[in-house]
Write a protein that binds this DNA or RNA. Sequence first.
RNA 1: GCGCCCGUAGCUCAAUCGGAUAGAGCAACAGCCUUCUAAGCUGUAGGUUACUGGUUCGAUUCCAGUCGGGCGUACCA
Length: 550
Amino acid sequence: MSMKDYLRDVVTAACSKLGFDNAEIYFEKPKEEKFGDLSTNAAFLLAKIQKTNPRKFAEELVSNFDYDKSIIEKIEIAGPGFINFFISDNYYKKLIPEILDKKENYGRSEINSGKSVNLEWVSANPTGYLHAGHGRQLCLGKAIANLLEWSGYIVTREYYYNDAGNQMLNMGKSIYARYMQIFEPDFPFPEDGYHGEYIKDIARKIYGDKKDSLKNSESMDYFINAGEEYNFKLIKNTLGKMGVRHDVFFNESDLYKTGAVEKTLEEFKSKNLSYEKDGAIWLKMDETEGFQKDKVIVKSSGEPTYRLPDIAYHIDKLNRGYDIVLDIFGSDHGDTYKEVIYGVKSLGYPYKKIHVIIHQMVTLRKGDNVIKLSKREGHSYSLDDLIDDIGADATQFFFVMRGANTHLDFDLELAKEKSEKNPVYYLQYAFARICGVLRNAENIFPEYKDFNAENINPELIISNDEINLLKTLSLFPEEVENAALSFEPHKIITYLNEVAEKFHKFYHNCRIIDAENKAQSAVRLYICLAVKQTLKNGFDIIGISAPERM
RNA sequence: GCGCCCGUAGCUCAAUCGGAUAGAGCAACAGCCUUCUAAGCUGUAGGUUACUGGUUCGAUUCCAGUCGGGCGUACCA
């Protein structure tokens, strides 16, 4: 039982005594040490209902508290009516064996256990390699998937793509043109074609395999397939470099094969949610939900627009029985996903299970120079190059360190920097430092490895640096829960920063290995092991490595 | 024009349902290595939370408006 839960019981019991049964009280960690370890606003809420002075009410509440004085050192009323709880150091001293016992599971939560989630992300069509801008989504999704697992979900990682649409045809035509240019240098290149060098590579590869046998080809199929195969190889290679493995690669064309698209269209028609105009089929959009005009779902050419299969796809995912269907999109899709959800909703499917995470765009720069990221124009900076330039850890860290809903300014020079300027190293250095200390400990007194909770004398934990460090470690499970509930892995980074900061302070002020005082050394090594474990678990969530040496 | 998102220290960003004196890192300045990794630590300075009003015990947070930026506003995805 967490400290918050314990205190919630204490406060709710007191509220009941005073006649408030379903009080929605909450606790928070005060920003300042002098306000204790946890604080509640209960008095404000209830005083509001009763229209009395919060401060007075707080006094009345506190006098009705029934609590364990060995855990709660003192309770104070402060300011306009905050009730501050000071938790006894003894509570934190029990934490180390708990962390070391739970090991790689310390921080895991059960709040979502038994539930399943489908997370779909990246989902770039295989018209080219992933460029650096895709990195944000790739890394964000990777960390969110981990976070969801840590909160108890069973996670299905999914990649949705379409190998039959206009974009792919366009790519096929581009490859074909490059292929033809091998014979006829003036062969026209499509107006909206893909200009990248990789298109020429694919064309040369086809020429190598097929020579001139595809000259003046009517069908683009071979070129599209060759392009898809080539590009997917690149994409999967990049995913692999970042340690991402999707469980499902879902092809849009399957929705046509199974009749799912047709079925969805029939549902719209039979429920009178669509109509025909100018040879196209339109979906009626509800103005009261903020839509300005109706949207085409089948073009006059007979081809569906992306909306229809997208709606069918989301219905398909809902039908697969997930408790949550989660999508990650860039802000350039910020309007379109609403149309998709609206479509799902209007057909009566459980659209509330669908959650969408929108991330803002990335500005990539080297110092003061902004790097452009357009795929069609060619010469874009690939994600592969980014990973090779700055490393997988820095890539992962920089893309995840900020909230998704804010524009990300990604400075390559900073990310590349192998110095204290680079925020990645602050965390990893703390870990490497601990590993160094433990290596030294093995030489000086190897018996520390045989210690267990019984050999440790918690009374030797006396300094503020030690207690503050332990307090911070104790917050990890709730930080994981909070981050998971809001799908915000950057909160884990913010938290780990605090752990690292408290550790560095502790390291600086408290001599760990002291041959003259083995009992104390043992306690401090124990603390190190607990910090090491917590850092490692946090690194696993955000998806960076834990280097033993730096 | 309309819709969504954003605006916090010089720069990049935090701030747990609306809470107490708005916090970090970098940059600047001043210190700390014969002692477990100085990729570290300590200290100083830095703010009208874009602006104006509203809601209330209390607003960076909620509401309205103004200004500024990003993304959309296709029978592309």
